[in-house]
Amino acid sequence: MHSLNELGKYSSLLYQALRSSTEFSTYRKNLFQELVKVGYDSVPIIVLTGVFTGSVMTLQSAYQLQSAFIPLSTIGAIVSESILIELAAVISSLVLAGKVGARVATELGTMRVSEQIDALESMGFNSVSFLVVPRVLAGILMFPVLYIVASIFGIGGGIAAGFFSGTVPPADFLQGARMYFYPWNVVFGFVKMFVFGFIITSVSCYKGYYAKGGAEGVGKSTTDATVLSCIFVLLADFILAALLL
C-alpha cells in the first residue's frame, strides 16, 4: 500500500513536471546551471571511473585469456565492447547516482524542510517547473554526453593499461576494438544513459521534494534517493537489455 502511494506521488510529480515543462522562462536560468552541475562538474569522476574500469578490465582479461591460441586483439574487442555496451553506462550511472542523485535530493530536501519551496510557491512560482524540470532535463541531456566521456576514457584506460603492463600492444587492442565494433552498441549505450539520467534525477527530485522532518529527514531522503536510483538503474538495465538486444 505504501509503495503504491509512493508510486502515485512520484507519477503525479512527473505529470506536473511534464505539464510545466512549457514554462521555459521559469527554469531557463536554472537549466543552464544544472547542465553545468550535472555534466561539466561530473567529468572528473567519470574520467576516473572510465580509466580505472578500462584498465582493470584489460588486466583481468589479459590474465584470464593467457593462451597462444587466442590473439591479443581479442582482449581489445572484449574490453571495448564491454565498455560501450554495458560498463560505461552502468558503472558511470551508479557513480552518478551517488554524485548527482545525492546532490539533487539534498538540495531539494533542504529547501523543503527550510520552507524555501513554500516560499517559492507563496511568491507565485511553480516550484516543480523551477526546481524539478531543469534537473530532470539536465539529467536526460547530460548523461549521454557523460557516456561518451566514460567510453573514450574507458577504452583509453584499457589501451594504456595493456601498453604499460606489457600485456596488449595498442595496435592489437585497437585492431580488436575496430573488428568487433557495432554502431548499434553505441546507440544502445545512449538509450540507456538517457533512461538512467531520467531515473536518477527524477527519483532524486521526488525524494528531495517530498522530504520532511529536518536534518534527519533530509539525510533519509538522500539515502533513499541514492539507493532507489541504483536499484532502478539495475532494473532498467535488465529490461532494456531484454527489449533491445
Binding site: Q116, A119, S122
Partner: peptide, 23 residues
C-alpha cells in the same frame, strides 16, 4: 485553477518562521 491561484498568491507576502531565505 493553478495559474489563477498563483496570481492570487502574488497578493501575499509571507515571512516564514525560519525566514526561508535562499542560501
Amino acid at each position: 485553477d493553478y495559474v489563477e491561484q498563483r496570481k492570487k498568491r502574488q497578493l501575499f507576502g509571507v515571512l516564514f518562521q525560519g525566514s526561508a531565505l535562499f542560501d
